[in-house]
Amino acid sequence: MNALLVTLPPYAADLAIVAVVALCTLLTRVLPFLLFGRGGRQPAPFILYLGRVLPAAVMAILVVYCLRSTGFSAASGFVPQAAGVAVVAALHLWKRNDLLSIAGGTAVYMALLRLL
């Protein structure tokens, strides 16, 4: 495989890389459907249970993921993130308007990035 990349002209090797990345990405997305979603039969109850409880768990993990680079050595490393999330949560619990919560929190975050 190494030899293949070396002998191809540069643009062809890059095309091959894009193709492999695209196919492998697609594979990770399509696999659950290939394994559990075909043939007209109902997926196992356990799989359906996982599908129902995963969104709440995944959303918590994605929030952690977005904030993963938060650092605590300087105020500028965590205050914008903490204040941004707090404003989003407070606005949302108050008004339940998603765009208002997102715009408010993002504005506070961007302002603090520049002030600190």
Partner: peptide, 26 residues
Amino acid sequence: GSLVSVALTTLSVNSRHLFYGLSFLE
């Protein structure tokens, strides 16, 4: 390096997607 390592990198970076489909099977 090789296309194999490109494939392995992609699979590991995107492995979280394996779980997303489970919520939309039906």
